[in-house]
Amino acid sequence: MKILVCISHVPDTTSKIKFVDENTKFDTTGVQFIIGPYDDYALARAVELKESIGSTTITVINVGLKETEPVIRKALAIGADDAIRINSAPINSYFVASKIAEQAKDFDLIMMGRESIDYNGGVVHSMVAEILGFPIVSPVMKLDIEGSVVKMTREIDGGQEIVEAQLPLVVGCQEPIAEWKIPNMRGIMSARTKPLKVVEVNSDDDFMESLKYELPPTKGAVQLISPDNISELVSKLRNEAKVL
């Protein structure tokens, strides 16, 4: 089986978000970049599938400039066999999806996170599926393969559903599909020599343009209420905040 894991290159979840150039660019100074946390779950499950199914290969793909290579190497260290980097900034979700789809035709299972944590679109997987004509299931919390049937548990509002689909398939993953894997020393050493193919593309499809960033307005000071006067809290919620 051939598995393709799509990884995003995103600021660590603890990052403070700031902008430069009159709020038109994300300020990457001091920001630690990681594999998208949800993509990391997808990768971890892919590695488990490879271990249990046998004769399975995992390719990771990322749409990004050279600066994303340390993150790609980390994915190789965790257990992917080879990697593809589409040499372009990830301009918008359709651009990313179409470039992934171009490389994804021969894969049986295409896995990625339910969403990236920078733009939080949660749409790239569905676009890839639409372009390739494959089914899409997301967010997937459990995934097992029996022959060409994929059994999954997906999250729905306030509950879960068990669903089945045939390969080829695209899935968006989230916890607890697998535990994040930390690369071991052998993995890190071997990752250095694993193949990483760089694909050049035209990046003229930029009709969706980011204009200006804004930060959320800062809150006023908190109003502290004494634990001995809880009825005051209730009356403030009702009369001041008008939320009760």
């Binding site: 979700s93 359709y94 999806a97 679109g121 949660g122 749409v123 639409e130 967010p139 509002d157």
Partner: peptide, 23 residues
């Protein structure tokens, strides 16, 4: 805004060659 509806939006956007904006 729900994860299922986002999947629909993405799929429709591809079909209609439409820009998509989330959230």
């Amino acid at each position: 805004n729900s994860s299922f509806v986002a999947l629909l939006g993405a799929s429709v956007a591809v079909k209609l060659k439409a820009n998509i904006a989330l959230n």
